[in-house]
Design a protein around this nucleic acid. Structure first.
Ligand SMILES: [Mn+2]
Ligand SMILES: [Mn+2]
Ligand SMILES: [Zn+2]
Ligand SMILES: [Zn+2]
Lengths: 136, 136
DNA sequence: TTCTTGACTTGGACTCCGTCCATCGTAGGA
DNA sequence: TCCTACGATGGACGGAGTCCAAGTCAAGAA
């Protein structure tokens, strides 16, 4: 994602300091931050950045496929900078921590034709739940 | 779920008209209603029932395992009366409709040991996304 | 370099979903 | 029938996210 800014410029984005800072925050550790966490980290570099702009920018990055949204529960959505490498999530039922995981096999294949009810499948999201070593 | 009321009585539930009505609403079609939809249907039979009571009762039913919560997006949670038969969901990206589906195979088996990071797995949720025949 | 303009940002109001709480009512046992 | 602890009520409250009118500024034009 280091060339994210290039790709955005290539797509005609006006490169503002706000967008740059949000992109840099996501470019750091591959964790799964909430919008407010992104805002807090962005504000550390650019104090006046508004929540609305963080939401706008995250939404744009999602549409562009650079970032994906993860909604594991009824809490705040988390933003996943790992947008280009398909993967699934392992969520701790205790502390809520999230790990990226790569299950084997074709997940779509698990749903037999007669269970598809005429739908055109496009994606599968799998959430594995359990207790992490610390919470066990 | 027709004997739900029996099971609840057996668990020491005080049987109020409110709880009875909420259970009856869920006992109808096996659809996936939001809490407010449950409230609307319950209020058709018992006009004074409050939203708080609907939320309380749904929460209790979830804890008892009679009903499960489904959070497919950032919108309102949906309540699934199909609590005793494990199944997954097929969600239309167009209209948001939800169907119960039963994938084949052991879903937990898809996550190899070295991808479990010491977690003790307890459940897997799979959401298949695509377009329903109407939206395609 | 300066000018111009429409894309972008801002902050606050607003909505939606859900929780909390003080108070009132009642199911069900004595 | 009476008592009382459990449950219901509704209104205040909170978190997450959206919307909007007004102000700002990135970047192309000259
Ligand atoms: Mn991820
Ligand atoms: Mn279901
Ligand atoms: Zn944990
Ligand atoms: Zn549809």
């Amino acid at each position: 994602m280091s060339d994210l800014l290039e790709r955005l410029r290539g797509r005609g984005w006006r490169m503002t300091s706000q967008r740059r800072v949000v992109a840099e925050v996501l470019d750091g550790d591959h964790v799964h931050l909430t919008a407010d966490e992104v805002h807090a980290r962005a504000a550390a570099r650019l104090p006046e950045i508004s929540r609305a702009t963080v939401y706008n920018t995250l939404g744009e990055l999602v549409v562009l496929g650079e970032v994906s949204e993860v909604a594991t529960d009824g809490r705040a959505k988390r933003y996943d900078p790992n947008g280009h490498t398909p993967h699934q999530h392992l969520v701790c039922s205790g502390c809520g921590s999230i790990r990226d995981v790569r299950p084997t096999g074709n997940l779509l294949a698990g749903l037999p034709q007669e269970e598809r009810f005429g739908f055109t499948l496009s994606a599968v999201e799998v959430t594995y739940r359990g207790l992490c070593p610390d919470c066990a």
